[in-house]
Amino acid sequence: MNAESSASGLDLVRLRALTLDGVEARFPLQPGDRHLVAIGETVVRGAPLAERLREARTEVAAGPAGRSGVPGGWWQGPLARRPRARRTVQGELLFQSGGHWRIAAGDPTEPLEAPFGGIITDVRPGIDVRLRTDARALLAADVLGGPSSGRLHFLAGRDGHVRAAEIDVAGAGAVLVVGSTIDAEAITRARAVGVRGIVVASLGVKERREVAGSELRARAGVHGLPPFAVLVLEGAIARPIATPIMAILEAIEGRTVAIVSGPACLVFDATELDLPAVDGNLVRITAGPLAGLEGAWGGLAGPYRFTGGVVLEAGWVRMGSRDPVAVPLGDLERFA
């Protein structure tokens, strides 16, 4: 415990970790998806990790003879002598019942590509593949879609609101930082013009549902679209991107970054880069009428009566030259 922060009460303000040094990302698989890598294998960005089924189903087949088959194993049936008459069943063995195997099969497949280079640390058929890198990562709240990767570019400032008209083909292949919020239509358009990812402070439930629907439609199409992901830094209610996060994003602008969902983060390989230092006295208001504003910690205010007769532990926040404002401690965060 830092003596100075302890004396001022700053320790009671929730500390938010911004970055991770080294990431082990998890890529979920479904039964029937076929992994193409093995534990300990080194992969580069773009290398195929697995083939995912787009239309999965359960097949019933005799399967491997005797007790040679194990659940989770891959099985390919004998080639048909008359292809037009019989199909060849291949897929993941699920279980054996009544002398026949249930097999997860399907077609067509789409590749799952590594969004960054690293070492495969675990492969569990039907469950996941884990990939480890020494690169750093910016932590976020949620990821929709993905994984994906591309060069990081800015489309708006920290409190921007991006609409569909602002998205064009210049963003193809890029991961765009769009500020505070973005329309669902803008996300759909971004995906259509080849943008690889969006970094946004907040995304409402309505937009999330529309993006999920758009994702389903894209996957159902005959020609699969390139990978795409939305990285949500904060939550559902609109607020600007915090300045320490913005400083990191600005420092890595133009570099290739990856968005992964487990853990939700933006991976960037910048081990040589000195990331901007965080002001230890900076606090950010995360909720209430002043949500999104930042200021300097002014000490504990003690139990304080707020609107609605609610008494909460509070701290003073100095914003510029104005008088300090009492803010509930729960509505404050600081950064590390």
């Binding site: 439930v205 309505k206 559902a236 209610i237 909720a287 707020f306 909460l312 729960g330 509505d331």
Partner: peptide, 17 residues
């Protein structure tokens, strides 16, 4: 839905008003 999602994520915030 947005409010509940954020309440679930940060249940200690926005406890006044």
């Amino acid at each position: 839905s947005d409010r509940l999602r954020d309440l679930r994520r940060h249940p200690w915030v926005d406890a006044a008003g």
